[in-house]
Protein backbone atom coordinates (compact mmCIF):
# COMPACT_ATOMS: atom_id res chain seq x y z
CA UNK A 1 0.00 0.00 0.00
CA UNK A 2 1.44 3.24 -0.98
CA UNK A 3 1.55 6.17 1.28
CA UNK A 4 0.85 9.60 0.12
CA UNK A 5 3.22 12.05 1.56
CA UNK A 6 2.24 15.60 1.47
CA UNK A 7 5.18 17.88 1.73
CA UNK A 8 4.27 20.79 3.84
CA UNK A 9 5.98 24.00 3.35
CA UNK A 10 8.00 24.93 6.36
CA UNK A 11 9.01 28.18 4.90
CA UNK A 12 7.46 31.03 6.76
CA UNK A 13 9.84 33.61 5.57
CA UNK A 14 7.68 36.43 6.76
CA UNK A 15 7.58 35.04 10.32
CA UNK A 16 11.23 34.25 10.73
CA UNK A 17 13.10 36.86 12.67
CA UNK A 18 16.26 38.05 11.10
CA UNK A 19 19.40 38.61 13.10
CA UNK A 20 18.52 42.25 13.33
CA UNK A 21 15.35 41.41 15.23
CA UNK A 22 16.56 38.65 17.50
CA UNK A 23 17.00 39.83 21.05
CA UNK A 24 18.70 37.36 23.35
CA UNK A 25 17.46 37.76 26.90
CA UNK A 26 20.25 37.64 29.42
CA UNK A 27 19.66 35.11 32.19
CA UNK A 28 18.38 36.12 35.59
CA UNK A 29 20.51 35.34 38.62
CA UNK A 30 19.25 34.37 42.05
CA UNK A 31 21.60 35.98 44.57
CA UNK A 32 21.91 35.02 48.23
CA UNK A 33 23.35 37.73 50.47
CA UNK A 34 25.39 37.34 53.63
CA UNK A 35 23.89 38.31 56.95
CA UNK A 36 25.63 38.35 60.32
CA UNK A 37 23.31 36.00 62.23
CA UNK A 38 22.24 33.09 60.04
CA UNK A 39 24.12 29.88 60.95
CA UNK A 40 26.18 28.49 58.06
CA UNK A 41 24.67 25.02 58.40
CA UNK A 42 21.18 26.50 57.97
CA UNK A 43 22.18 28.11 54.65
CA UNK A 44 23.53 24.75 53.45
CA UNK A 45 20.40 22.74 54.28
CA UNK A 46 18.13 25.37 52.72
CA UNK A 47 20.15 25.45 49.47
CA UNK A 48 20.08 21.64 49.36
CA UNK A 49 16.34 21.57 49.98
CA UNK A 50 15.32 24.21 47.43
CA UNK A 51 17.77 23.48 44.59
CA UNK A 52 18.44 19.78 45.30
CA UNK A 53 22.17 20.58 45.32
CA UNK A 54 24.73 18.14 46.72
CA UNK A 55 26.16 18.85 50.15
CA UNK A 56 29.48 19.81 48.52
CA UNK A 57 27.91 22.31 46.12
CA UNK A 58 25.65 23.84 48.78
CA UNK A 59 28.64 24.20 51.13
CA UNK A 60 30.73 25.81 48.38
CA UNK A 61 27.95 28.34 47.69
CA UNK A 62 27.46 29.04 51.41
CA UNK A 63 31.19 29.75 51.78
CA UNK A 64 31.06 32.11 48.78
CA UNK A 65 28.18 33.98 50.44
CA UNK A 66 30.11 34.13 53.71
CA UNK A 67 33.45 35.21 52.23
CA UNK A 68 32.32 37.46 49.39
CA UNK A 69 29.10 38.85 50.85
CA UNK A 70 26.94 37.32 48.11
CA UNK A 71 26.79 34.44 45.67
CA UNK A 72 24.80 33.59 42.56
CA UNK A 73 23.09 30.33 43.44
CA UNK A 74 21.04 29.82 40.26
CA UNK A 75 20.68 31.37 36.78
CA UNK A 76 17.94 31.03 34.17
CA UNK A 77 14.54 32.34 33.18
CA UNK A 78 13.01 35.19 35.13
CA UNK A 79 9.86 33.43 36.33
CA UNK A 80 11.84 30.52 37.75
CA UNK A 81 14.34 32.92 39.33
CA UNK A 82 11.45 34.75 41.02
CA UNK A 83 10.03 31.45 42.25
CA UNK A 84 13.35 30.36 43.74
CA UNK A 85 13.86 33.79 45.32
CA UNK A 86 10.42 33.63 46.94
CA UNK A 87 11.23 30.17 48.31
CA UNK A 88 14.51 31.48 49.75
CA UNK A 89 12.63 34.36 51.39
CA UNK A 90 10.04 31.99 52.83
CA UNK A 91 12.90 29.95 54.28
CA UNK A 92 14.29 33.11 55.88
CA UNK A 93 17.34 33.83 53.72
CA UNK A 94 18.32 37.25 52.36
CA UNK A 95 18.02 36.91 48.58
CA UNK A 96 17.13 38.82 45.42
CA UNK A 97 17.19 38.47 41.65
CA UNK A 98 19.15 40.45 39.07
CA UNK A 99 19.56 40.22 35.32
CA UNK A 100 22.97 39.18 34.03
CA UNK A 101 24.77 42.16 32.48
Amino acid sequence: MGATVTKRSTSTRGDVATDDHVAVEHPWNVVVWNDPVTPMSVVVVILRKIFQYSNAKATQLMLAVHNEGRAIVWSGKKDRAEGYCVQLHAHGLHASIEQDA
Partner: peptide, 9 residues
Amino acid sequence: LCALQNVLR
Protein backbone atom coordinates in the same frame (compact mmCIF):
# COMPACT_ATOMS: atom_id res chain seq x y z
CA LEU B 1 13.42 25.66 60.85
CA CYS B 2 11.89 28.03 58.28
CA ALA B 3 9.77 29.88 60.82
CA LEU B 4 12.63 30.24 63.33
CA GLN B 5 15.00 31.42 60.58
CA ASN B 6 12.46 34.12 59.65
CA VAL B 7 12.16 34.96 63.35
CA LEU B 8 15.95 35.25 63.60
CA ARG B 9 16.08 37.69 60.70
